[in-house]
Design a protein around this nucleic acid. Structure first.
Lengths: 152, 152
DNA sequence: AATTTCAGTCTCAAAATAAGACTGGACTTG
DNA sequence: CAAGTCCAGTCTTATTTTGAGACTGAAATT
């Protein structure tokens, strides 16, 4: 009765969710994008139980999303920082943010926005596009199954 | 000791995860994008316990991601179909798919790809871009907190 | 009419979660 | 440098969630 794992599924979405598909992981990653690095800072920001946090951080380190860096302010403590793999989750978090902004706030409710740090202008809307930049709806795409590696 | 809820957090990411941030919801949505509509089809595809599935489907309907449609093939059963809100999750699923493809497959391992249905060409890479389409890294953006609604 | 499929609900054991007490090393400060 | 505080976890325990499957009743099939 172990919780099911999608780690070896064919579908990349399933594999991705296996790594960052739980209640807390993406919030940890979001905080990491905001510059949070220390255990205590995550804990305070998220209000998560320390045991949960410890487990999740370990899992994310093991998954290669975060890594334990030795210092940064000279102290002997270590810090959790995003790896390249973790930084690549930026689009995922941004997509979730966009969807949340679009659908999960009441009409007059104040909401935050992701903006270009240079000029403060909101970032462009995320969309799935064809190679020629034409926007594609979900029913204008399909999943091409497992193209067998030709060269290898 | 109920599982924490992010439903009323300020952060759109947290709110989004409150709706679709559990182990199964996004896989259900992914299957819905693939055309799955019936309870039994979801159950068979995902291998999820029926109780889980029933709970999740109800939650997604309640959240307005799916809706219960009366028929489609004439039978008396009903079907779960994506609402507009649910269809807007396409980018999220696509972003997860891209990340999974990039980071969660071994070198020679065959993998699927999301392609333009028209010509079979892979869709463009998802990226966060500025208003002028310039790609933005995570540290070239910031979150502008809760701009208070001026008009209302 | 009998059988099978569908779409769930119900039950139960195992696992995950939340909350916080506890531990030991780091840091401060007098 | 000794006492007290902070940091980063681990451990414990009560509660909730999950996974697996038995069970139910309506719908479809034969």
């Amino acid at each position: 009765m172990r919780r099911v794992s999608f780690g070896s599924a064919d579908c990349p979405v399933a594999r991705a969710l296996d790594v960052i598909g739980d209640w807390w992981s993406l919030l940890i990653v979001r905080d990491a994008f905001d510059g949070v690095r220390r255990f205590g800072a995550f804990q305070k920001n998220l209000g998560v139980a320390k045991g949960m946090l410890a487990t999740r951080l370990q899992a994310l380190v093991e998954a290669g999303v975060l890594e334990l860096a030795p210092a940064s302010d000279g102290s002997a403590y270590s810090e959790y920082v995003l790896t390249a793999k973790g930084r690549d989750l930026f689009v995922v978090v941004a997509a979730l943010r966009q969807w949340g902004e679009d659908h999960l706030f009441a009409a007059g409710e104040p909401r935050s926005a992701l903006v270009d740090a240079r000029d403060g202008a909101p970032v462009a809307r995320l969309e799935v596009r064809a190679a020629d930049a034409r926007p594609l709806a979900f029913d204008e795409t399909r999943v091409e199954k497992a193209r067998p590696a030709k060269g290898a």
